[in-house]
Write a protein that binds this DNA or RNA. Structure first.
Ligand SMILES: [Zn+2]
Ligand SMILES: [Zn+2]
Ligand SMILES: [Zn+2]
Ligand SMILES: [Zn+2]
Lengths: 146, 146
DNA sequence: ATATGTTACGTAATAATATAACACAAATAA
DNA sequence: TTATTTGTGTTATATTATTACGTAACATAT
């Protein structure tokens, strides 16, 4: 018998995996592997590998995503992202937060390109860098009224 | 007066920048900064920073792209990619080659998402991992006729 | 129960990628 | 010229990730 992992709570995770996932869920921004390690030293974690192994597993389960452009990790905030086969992030360079999104149209265009070019796609990563709405407001405030 | 960089040959590059760009143009696959350094030791380069500085400049000029998911760099193969404001790569995990593409529809959808969400996008990276056509053929060959 | 296969764990060492800090040289502009 | 910017070379260090090894926990088949 085989268990299928789809949702956060339904999977049986090991202690280290649970620690890492809970920390990422509690964080409001992506975290690096080493900052995860630092936060979890009080829980008994000591070595990078303990974190990287937990992350590998969580990513495999689809519970965590890796932000390639930042070497950082974030809990999946988009329950439907597995159905779409495409995940994207808009990453604010000011506050460091990452907004996850999924878009079927983009996914279809990209898979269309792939099949038209004979490319067998396994995974797709979209990362938009810029400034989030909240940070734009703050910088407008501090630069005088408009 | 200000020069505008648009094509490989039209920009005046320094010696190190030229070395790095020529090497990337000659390579049929993306290269890491340290493999670039190794290849250019015979030309007098000695330290990582010499490579990273050249790469920074070349990326700023749009002559080189960084593959975020691989920590690797590749010469721009798509003269029009600056017009589209969006670059994508299909990266073959078997042979390591990266096919650059630009798609206006995807670019529009993504910028539409951004403006709908108040996100001020500066740059977008799309990286598709999978197997290229050529590598699929080879693996079919070696697995017996169909 | 015992053996087997699989997955996870812990630790140490090391590899791979990237940047900081400093002093100096070349090109550019005023 | 003088000032300013940009690039250079070097050393040291920071950050991110993996290899290698041995052990423990767990499932399950005999
Ligand atoms: Zn997700
Ligand atoms: Zn922000
Ligand atoms: Zn390009
Ligand atoms: Zn290939």
């Amino acid at each position: 018998m085989k268990e299928v992992a789809m949702a956060t709570a339904e999977v049986k995770l090991t202690k280290n995996q649970r620690l890492v996932l809970d920390l990422l869920c509690a964080s409001d921004a992506p975290m690096s592997a080493y900052s995860i390690l630092d936060q979890l030293r009080t829980e008994g974690l000591r070595a990078p590998l303990q974190v990287y192994r937990a992350l590998d597993k969580l990513i495999g389960l689809g519970l965590v995503h890796r932000l390639e452009s930042m070497n950082a990790f974030v809990a999946c905030a988009h329950p439907a992202c597995h159905a779409v086969e495409m995940v994207g992030f808009a990453i604010c360079e000011t506050c460091g937060k990452a907004l996850e999104f999924a878009d079927n149209d983009v996914a279809e265009i990209l898979s269309g390109w792939a099949s038209a070019n004979g490319f067998d796609a396994k995974s797709t990563s979209i990362e938009i860098k810029g400034t989030c709405a909240s940070c734009q407001e703050k910088s407008e405030d501090s630069s005088g009224a408009e």
